[in-house]
Write a protein that binds this DNA or RNA. Sequence first.
DNA 1: CGAAAATTTGACATGACTCAACTGGAGTGG
DNA 2: CCACTCCAGTTGAGTCATGTCAAATTTTCG
Lengths: 192, 192
Amino acid sequence: MNVFFEYLKRYIHLTEKEEAFINSKLRYRTYLKRQYIVQAGDVCKYQTYIVAGKVRTFCLDDDGNEHIISFGIENWWVGDLKSFISQTPAEADVQCLSKTEVIQISHVDLEELYKEVPKMERLFRLIIQNAYVNSQKRILRNYSLSAKERYLLFQEEYPQIVQRVPQYMIASYLGITKEFLSTIRSQILKES
Amino acid sequence: MNVFFEYLKRYIHLTEKEEAFINSKLRYRTYLKRQYIVQAGDVCKYQTYIVAGKVRTFCLDDDGNEHIISFGIENWWVGDLKSFISQTPAEADVQCLSKTEVIQISHVDLEELYKEVPKMERLFRLIIQNAYVNSQKRILRNYSLSAKERYLLFQEEYPQIVQRVPQYMIASYLGITKEFLSTIRSQILKES
DNA sequence: CGAAAATTTGACATGACTCAACTGGAGTGG
DNA sequence: CCACTCCAGTTGAGTCATGTCAAATTTTCG
């Protein structure tokens, strides 16, 4: 049918009937640059799949500093999961960094999908499992590597992101200041 | 039947037949203090549910330093998830900190359970979803809070763990040195 | 009781932060 | 097409949170 179902096929096999049913629950939408898919304080109503574009998920701490929790590009899911599953106010903002096309599933629709198409449980189990493994890897790296090492690995693993988002956001994602990332980069340049 | 099925009932409802089938796939085992449930380099063969006891999951970095990724106590699942799902060598060690009773499910058995009892997909989706939310919370805290603040929050949220594992492991879990945690603690004492 | 393990303490070192000034595009409007 | 502004990125000086190392002390447990 479309890019979304191609994506689903990587994880589960669906009958035509199931595809049609799933499709009936999808909401297609386009956001503009700087618009919010989720705003802290509001309930996160949808699981959001990115068809095209890019977003960032971030939190504000007590001192008003932004901390980037994650980026999202094509084929990634975004949203404040905690808020979504409990339908309570979100702590994070999800903001588009460019015009972004998405597919969304609401909480009730997803529960219904789980009921009618149990393979969807499998799909999301696999996706979240994967996200969890990456999350643990990130924690470990924050503990065991220097800022420079983390930056080099990030560059290696997510070149598409390094090229497409401003440097100060990458610094925030890595848990360092933009100034320090800048000095790290000049060090790397000198070395080579 | 037993504590494990009580635990399952918090997430999903099972028929007697299903319970019996699940039970036929469970492996009961007891480890002694210092024994390894998973060893880095070996494949993680089981998802392990802790009935009683306590464990730690840790990695060694290139300089031979230990980094504690997580603790596990009653009702928690442990194992190297990445190794388990792909059946490749584990990067982490899971070691018992005291005599520990567990229930284990092997990779093939779990796949079969998913097939025969689709509710198990839901169970593990919910469990991993929860673990993922906590993991993200931990990342954010590492970025936005000082070591002292992280320690105070950890004490609040996991008093059972603070009381039951050595301080130097908690330091490692928080991403700081044992010496620094010691000075934090003496600061806290002076303040009160 | 004695040895090993865990914790504390203190002197010193350093990675990363803060703040402020400066540089260099990328619009935007006159 | 120039002048102006704005935002991202750079640079440098000074500072601070946390790390390192070594020794002293306390706790645990065989």
